[in-house]
């Protein structure tokens, strides 16, 4: 009865396109909107870091070591007397860049593997799925470590290590959604027009798996930021003196007994970035498919 009343609502509401409808629903989700604002703020501060940063992030001043936050250095200075705020602003560039690269590679790879395997099925599907099973038998973090050790520590290598680790789970999920779409009638129809397989995948399968892909992209961005900083803690990933949130945090651990700002501020940023990407992902999932809402 309740459902009936609810379902009669949309008739009254003006009809909107799918995108506008999603945007409208998302705009009503307060946590997701806060998260979106924070993400935009992060991106802006990364883009405009050179203008926003009060100091050169690499400039050392050994007379100004471990200054607690004050007006000149709002977040204090590190063990080389470098301004922490400036380092975090530039570090955000690296953290975001690497995570965007990692997610782009993993989503791209997973899309190709997942939709092809799901669409063609058969022996290919079986073999690829068994290989992915093997990947997934190794905990993600350990696999990233192994890849990272083998590949090296440049920005691209770090991103690749993270991407390679996260492809299997994502590909598996996309395969599942492809399987659902594959047997739909419009795919049959497209085949009857003589469309090629790759054209069908590109035109019909991928657009229809877009909703989970967008949600996953947001979630994975958060995870990638966490993974990058985790690598830095273990001495892998982006190496100092290049600033990156994780390695700034790692450098602070040595001075935990005497100086708190160096571990506090980068951690807050990593946590907030992760929280924002998670909330945004949750919000997008609810907005794109209200039926999935828990």
């Amino acid at each position: 009865m309740i459902r009936k009343a609810v379902s009669s609502q949309p008739k009254v509401r003006k009809r909107r396109g799918r995108f506008a409808e999603t945007a409208h629903r998302l705009s009503k989700n307060i946590p997701a909107m806060c998260a979106l604002c924070f993400v935009v703020l992060l991106i802006m501060s990364a883009v405009f870091a050179p203008y926003l940063a009060p100091y050169d992030y690499a400039k050392q001043d050994l007379t100004q070591k471990f200054v607690t936050p004050n007006l000149a250095h709002p977040l204090g200075t590190d063990n080389f007397g470098r301004d922490i705020l400036s380092r975090l602003l530039f570090g955000g560039r690296i953290s975001l860049l690497v995570s965007v690269m990692a997610v782009a590679m993993s989503v791209g790879g997973a899309l190709i593997v997942g939709s092809a395997v799901g669409y063609f099925g058969g022996a290919l599907d079986n073999i690829v799925m068994r290989i992915l099973d093997v990947f997934m038998a190794i905990p993600g973090m350990l696999l990233t470590i192994v890849f990272s050790v083998a590949l090296g520590t440049t920005l691209f290598d770090t991103a690749l290590a993270i991407a390679l680790t996260s492809i299997p789970a994502l590909a598996r999920q996309l395969r599942a959604s492809t399987l659902l779409i594959r047997d739909q009638e419009y795919i049959e129809a497209a085949k009857s027009f003589g469309s090629s397989h790759w054209r069908i995948i590109w035109k019909h399968v991928i657009p229809n798996t877009l909703a989970p892909v967008i949600v996953q992209t947001s979630m994975r961005l958060g995870e990638a930021i966490l993974a990058i900083s985790g690598m830095s803690i273990l001495g892998l990933g982006v190496q100092p003196p290049t600033p990156e949130w994780g390695n700034i945090l790692a450098s602070g651990q040595e001075y935990i007994r005497t100086y708190w700002p160096l571990i506090t501020f980068p951690g807050i940023l990593i946590g907030l970035a992760m929280l924002s990407f998670n909330l945004l992902g949750d919000g997008l999932r609810d907005a794109m498919d209200p039926r999935l809402k828990k």
């Binding site: 985790g230 803690i233 571990i263 907030l272 992760m274």
Partner: peptide, 12 residues
């Protein structure tokens, strides 16, 4: 808390 990295939590 599900967004707090465990290594940072440990340090704090």
């Amino acid at each position: 808390f599900s967004a707090v990295p465990n290594f940072w939590l440990a340090m704090m």
